[in-house]
């Protein structure tokens, strides 16, 4: 029962941290953690289908995309 509370706390703090941090790469990594923990939350809500999809697409592909764009955007290193 209180596993869900722990996961919820992790998610909320991760979300806040992602929004607040300055460094982009750190934000992306923490976002990956948040989406993984949301996939666990889906499991706790008895929704395995959604959990797998969220894990595969929500955290897998999206984080990959973010890192890809981060690499492309960071190339010139003059982020104003």
């Amino acid at each position: 029962m209180f596993l869900s509370v722990i996961i919820a706390v992790i998610m909320i703090f991760g979300a806040m941290w992602t929004i607040v941090t300055e460094d982009l790469f750190k934000a992306i990594v923490i976002f990956a953690i948040v989406s993984l923990s949301s996939s666990i939350m889906f499991l706790l809500m008895q929704a395995p289908d959604v959990a797998i999809t969220e894990a595969a697409i929500g955290s897998g592909i999206t984080t990959g995309l973010f890192i890809f764009t981060y690499k492309k955007v960071e190339e010139e290193k003059d982020e104003r």
């Binding site: 395995p48 289908d49 797998i52 999809t53 595969a56 697409i57 897998g60 990959g64």
Partner: peptide, 24 residues
């Protein structure tokens, strides 16, 4: 995942994602 999507959890979308990682 997609062959017995109708029996166990999972389905078309995660299966596609996983296969695409193979190609990745």
């Amino acid at each position: 995942t997609f062959i017995n999507g109708h029996l166990s959890p999972g389905g078309g979308f995660p299966a596609g994602a996983i296969i695409s990682t193979a190609i990745l």
